[in-house]
């Protein structure tokens, strides 16, 4: 109803719109909320890799193709990002489940949870990759 005029025939009043993202100073809790959604979307498309890996395991040539991709530098970067994205979304999800129980809404708690989410996801991703690269026997 944008063209609606007021009763006396004047143009509609320019009322303020509800504040949106660009109005606010970025805060950690807000950034973690946005990142939770972005990592969820990334994980969504990452499942293509999961389905590829599972089905590639059926035969040597198909698995060689997957291993070539996974071992390439672009494949490594994508898989590292995917690992972090999954871990971050999982920790963020646990945070949301805590909130669902009605806990963790205090000023200190929510800041602490947001920081733990970010630091935890980075730390766990690096630990998993160190374990993974060691399991593969170093460089290859």
């Amino acid at each position: 109803m944008a063209e609606t005029r007021s009763l006396d025939g004047r143009a509609p009043a320019q009322r303020p719109l509800s504040p949106h993202l660009q109005i606010y100073r970025p805060m950690l809790t807000m950034m973690m909320s946005i990142v939770h959604r972005i990592t969820g979307a990334a994980n969504y498309f990452g499942t293509i890799l999961l389905a590829w890996w599972i089905n590639a395991a059926a035969g040597p040539s198909g698995y060689a193709r997957f291993q070539w991709f996974a071992g390439s530098w672009i494949g490594r970067i994508i898989l590292f990002g995917y690992t972090w994205s999954v871990i971050h979304h999982m920790l963020g999800g646990i945070r949301h489940l805590i909130w669902d129980s009605g806990r963790g809404f205090g000023a200190n708690e929510r800041e602490w949870l947001a920081a733990a989410n970010l630091i935890g996801s980075i730390a766990i991703t690096i630990i998993l990759w160190v374990i993974g690269l060691l399991a593969m026997g170093g460089s290859q």
Partner: peptide, 9 residues
């Protein structure tokens, strides 16, 4: 697709 691959294996 993933379920199919796992059942096949």
């Amino acid at each position: 697709t993933s379920v199919y691959g796992l059942l096949k294996l």
